[in-house]
């Protein structure tokens, strides 16, 4: 029942969003024909190419045609490269996903222990340091942070390459060195958000009666923090992770540009420049599906974390 409901919602979101972006892209000036043939092409050549590409059809027909293809798993063929869009996306997606997962692991791996430690001694030195650090990190644009990190680790100390990408299938070690700096850059801002959220919620949880009673039962602070307080304090954090993942599937373009990574974000930007509508459409589909899938996953995690949510 819930799954059916979710699927219906996914389809609605997908159709609305892809239609809007289809219209938007077609309304804007410039088209693939000019992009392919150049400005000097004759009108006959342009018309013929239009027919070949199907661009002479009305907008709605083209959209429905594309949507029909999508239903059978066909993302269409790029006007510009004449390559299947699906294959291009499949090649780019793992890069973005690996970047995202690595960034989340770094952010959470730091944020949970730091948030717990800051909440345990709220108002003390560590807590105040975390407040200042997270404020600074939240005020650092990602490309500024990336530039500084490249300057330090790639240019000055030369421990990792500044740019470039080695696929995981080629060499795991090189793959990791090429993902570590972009992942840290992306993860820093999220670390700040996550640690702040967790700290605030934990401090609220630690005021609860059941925590005082756990202390009255002679349990150690460590046990109380990790086993009793962490889980009830995690809801806001999980929401934030979900929102982040949803937003980042297409939102890592800056990082991908800065570090020269062939990811989805870069693909969408390049395709917009080259008026490669169908590739952009494919990217939009991925973003929308990712958005809904992440939301669904977040609901499942909610239920696992808090039994009070399970009833519905």
């Amino acid at each position: 029942m819930i799954v059916v409901h979710r699927l219906a919602r996914l389809l609605v979101v997908l159709v609305v969003v892809t239609f809007l972006s289809f219209v938007l892209l077609n309304l804007l000036p410039g088209d693939p024909v000019t992009q392919i043939l150049g400005l000097s092409a004759t009108e006959e050549a342009r018309a013929q190419l239009r027919r070949e590409l199907g661009l002479d059809q009305p907008l709605l027909v083209r959209y429905l045609d594309w949507l029909g293809g999508l239903a059978t798993g066909d993302f269409g063929t790029s006007y510009i490269t004449r390559m299947p869009v699906g294959a291009e996306l499949a090649e780019r997606l793992p890069v973005t996903l690996e970047l995202l997962i690595a960034a989340q692991l770094i952010a959470l791996g730091l944020a949970v222990p730091v948030g717990v430690a800051a909440a345990r001694r709220a108002g003390r030195a560590l807590d105040q340091a975390l407040t200042a650090l997270s404020f600074a990190l939240l005020s650092t644009p990602v490309f500024v942070l990336g530039v500084v990190l490249i300057l330090l680790f790639a240019v000055t100390w030369q421990v990792v390459p500044a740019t470039g990408w080695t696929p995981i299938t080629l060499d795991l070690g090189w793959n990791l060195t090429s993902v570590i700096l972009p992942a840290v850059t992306l993860g820093c801002g999220q670390f700040a958000v996550y640690a702040r959220l967790l700290r605030t919620d934990l401090i609220a949880t630690l005021q609860e009666d059941y925590i005082t009673l756990a202390r009255a039962r002679g349990l150690s602070p460590r046990r109380i923090l990790w086993r009793h307080a962490l889980r009830p304090s995690a809801i806001t954090l999980i929401t934030a992770i979900g929102l982040n993942l949803g937003a980042l599937i297409g939102g890592t373009v800056i990082i991908e540009t800065l570090f020269g990574l062939p990811g989805i974000g870069r693909l969408i930007v390049d395709s917009i420049f080259s008026r490669d509508y169908l590739t952009v459409q494919g990217g939009v589909v991925l973003i929308s599906v990712g958005y809904v899938v992440v939301n669904f996953a977040v609901d499942l995690v909610y239920a696992a974390v808090d039994p009070r949510i399970r009833r519905a």
Partner: peptide, 19 residues
């Protein structure tokens, strides 16, 4: 809600790139 679900990046890029 629809506006928030729409990928803002695509919108911004497209408008600025074309307009």
């Amino acid at each position: 809600d629809v506006a928030q679900a729409f990928p803002a990046l695509v919108f911004a890029l497209a408008v600025v790139a074309f307009a």
